[in-house]
């Protein structure tokens, strides 16, 4: 069982969350020419790292906020959680 510290609600069990995938993916900027490759990278291509991985989770059965979680994909250890609008590099 994963325990995730929601930045809004505190420690909650995995059952309350749903997963939203890689948090480092950025949508191509609007009003700019976007190449097919850029769209591919945004929509389909993923690094799927083994080790530390920033990802999105939604506290679906709680405050319903999206959050960012830094988790190890090999050990399931969770290092850090942020609000969705906080920058990973913080």
């Amino acid at each position: 069982m994963l325990y995730i510290k929601c930045p809004y609600c505190g420690w909650r069990s995995q059952n309350e969350f749903s997963y939203g995938g890689d948090a480092s993916i950025k949508r191509p900027k609007l009003n700019k020419e976007v190449s097919d490759q850029d769209w591919d990278n945004f929509v389909y291509n993923r690094k799927s790292l083994r080790g530390k991985h920033w990802e999105l989770w939604q506290h679906l059965s709680g405050c319903r906020q999206w959050i960012k979680v830094e988790r190890d994909t090999a050990t399931h250890e969770i290092f850090k959680t942020l609000k969705a609008d906080e920058d990973i590099s913080l």
């Binding site: 997963y19 083994r50 991985h53 990802e55 994909t73 090999a74 050990t75 399931h76």
Partner: peptide, 10 residues
């Protein structure tokens, strides 16, 4: 339901 290389589940 989440990325994992753990070969063991929850």
């Amino acid at each position: 339901g989440y990325n994992s290389y753990a070969q063991r589940g929850n």
